[in-house]
Design a protein around this nucleic acid. Sequence first.
DNA 1: GTCTATATGGGGATAGAC
DNA 2: GTCTATCCCCATATAGAC
Lengths: 221, 221
Amino acid sequence: MPSTKAKRSPGGRGAGRIRRERCAAILAAAEQEFAQHGFRGTSTQAIADGCGLAKAQVHYYFETKEVLYRALLAQILDAWNCPLNAVSAADEPYDVLSRYIEAKLRLSWQSPQRSRIFAAEVMRGAPVLRDFLLNEQQGWVTRFSAAIDGWIGQGKMRQLDPLQLIFMLWSVTQHYADYEAQVLLLMQRERLTEEDLVRVSAEVCEFFLRGCGIDMPVVKS
Amino acid sequence: MPSTKAKRSPGGRGAGRIRRERCAAILAAAEQEFAQHGFRGTSTQAIADGCGLAKAQVHYYFETKEVLYRALLAQILDAWNCPLNAVSAADEPYDVLSRYIEAKLRLSWQSPQRSRIFAAEVMRGAPVLRDFLLNEQQGWVTRFSAAIDGWIGQGKMRQLDPLQLIFMLWSVTQHYADYEAQVLLLMQRERLTEEDLVRVSAEVCEFFLRGCGIDMPVVKS
DNA sequence: GTCTATATGGGGATAGAC
DNA sequence: GTCTATCCCCATATAGAC
């Protein structure tokens, strides 16, 4: 049982304070590097440089590069769950789709790196995320597909393959994150702003509602 | 002036035969590796193993890893130009869009690796392809956008941002290549077949035509 | 012209100092 | 509990043999 009267613990709560700060800094730096160069292409040295630590310190807090990578992926999937699961509460296809698109685009605007890390992981065959894709993601897709089929049955949207619609939702919304460099060059911008998000979100929403044959409600104005 | 009576040149035309064969084999192996692990994540050793050569042989035919990488990118851009430029001959938005979608999906089916190499290059900030994006690609986008604006002016499709439409075309068609691992898992397939291509192509075409508000011609049958 | 043997540096990881 | 000094391997690239 460790002593309760530890002398130094002014900022945080004792033992784990430095640890928490360092781990957070390492994860943040790792996010940058892995997003640009993938798992193999990233060196722990570059991560260490990115957060001003010595390479060996990184290996102290995360035993191996893969442990660090897995921790980062877990953090990313966590951060994605909240805003996207909150969406499926609504019942009307119009609400569900437009909210989902907006939430997903917002994620691409907020932290494009995370999408890129996910993309790179899938592009190398998803060795680490395979289980996640087969279990949680597969389940989510099945439920969402069932909802879409329900809407089709009720005549709320035209007949289409739910899975293909899901792929299109994902691809379009992630494009602004994964291909950000190309998007910025062609849009002749230095960075994507909140105004861009609103504009693109409206464009994409309308496109998908029309593509699905969903009647849009009359806009108040 | 080299001797015309060279003894050994049965298969190809003298000097460059072995060279051509080796270079082709190396480029093919490089395509696999770069597609999975990006520029930094790929080792010349892995490429050598992939084509059954010694590592140093790879360095003989391509002085550095970057030279090999650039050669591969050039080859990819070449292969993409032909089928996609042939599309823009037609005048009607219906024809242009549906042919473009089909051609681009076919590329994703035929050689998904190439799309992934392009994706990885853009994801790391496009240090090598920056010039290509700024010059040739920018020009293509400008011309295509002008065509779209023309169609909008003629009332052939609804008003929308041409650039966003282009991004959606790219993202959806490339998704099946870049995220192939995820697509295969969720579609519960081992590989994507020609039938899948036809089905997906039809789905995506209809979706885009509706999304753009383009009237579809009456189908004969 | 082609391939083998070799140099030099950076990679991930750890044993031990503080 | 935290960090520094060090290990060993694999990476790219080349000099020289064939």
